[in-house]
Simulated scan of single mutants.
Amino acid sequence: MSGDRPLATLVAEPWADYGLVDSGHGRKLERYGRFRFVRPEPQALWAPAAEEWRHDGEFLGASDEEGGGRWHLDRGVPRSWPLAWEEVRFHAANTPFRHLAFFPDMAPQWAWMRARLRPEDEVMNLFGYTGVGSLALAARGARVTHVDASKKSVETGKVNAELSGMADRPIRWMVDDATKFAAREVRRGRRYAGIMLDPPKFGRGPTGEVWRLEEGLPGLIADCVRLLTPESRFLVLTVYAVRMSALAIGELLRQATAALGGRVEAGDMAVREEARGLLLPTAIFARWSPATGSTAP
Rank of each mutant, 00 (worst) to 15 (best):
M1I: 07
S2T: 14
D4V: 14
R5P: 05
L7H: 03
L7R: 03
A8Y: 01
E13Q: 14
G19E: 03
G19V: 00
S23M: 15
S23K: 14
G24E: 07
H25N: 09
K28R: 13
E30R: 06
R39E: 11
P40F: 10
Q43G: 12
A44T: 08
W46A: 11
W46L: 09
P48S: 10
E52P: 02
E52I: 09
H55D: 08
H55L: 15
D56A: 07
L60C: 06
G61T: 14
A62C: 15
W71R: 08
H72T: 14
D74P: 10
R75P: 12
G76C: 15
R79L: 04
L83V: 02
L83R: 01
W85M: 00
W85R: 02
V88D: 01
T95F: 07
P104T: 10
P104K: 07
D105P: 05
M106I: 04
P108V: 05
Q109I: 09
W110Q: 07
A111E: 10
R114M: 03
A115Q: 07
R118T: 10
R118S: 14
P119R: 08
E120Q: 15
M124D: 05
M124A: 15
G128C: 01
G131A: 04
V132A: 07
G133C: 05
S134Y: 00
S134Q: 02
S134W: 02
A136V: 02
A142C: 12
R143N: 07
A149R: 00
E155K: 13
G157F: 03
K158A: 10
E162K: 11
L163Q: 02
M166E: 01
M166R: 01
A167S: 11
R169A: 15
P170Q: 07
R172Q: 08
D176C: 06
D176F: 06
D176M: 05
V186H: 04
R187G: 13
R191S: 12
R191A: 11
Y192F: 15
L197S: 00
D198C: 02
P200N: 12
F202C: 13
F202Q: 14
G203L: 11
G205E: 06
T207H: 09
G208L: 15
L217P: 03
P218A: 09
L220T: 07
I221A: 04
D223A: 13
R226V: 05
L227G: 03
L228G: 00
S232K: 05
V236T: 05
V239P: 03
Y240L: 09
S245L: 08
A248V: 14
E251Q: 15
E251H: 15
L253M: 14
L253D: 02
Q255T: 13
T257V: 12
A258N: 05
A258W: 09
G261N: 08
G262P: 01
V264A: 05
G267M: 00
G267F: 01
E273I: 15
L278I: 10
L279G: 11
P281M: 08
F285L: 01
G293I: 01
G293A: 10
G293R: 04
G293F: 00
S294K: 08
P297C: 09
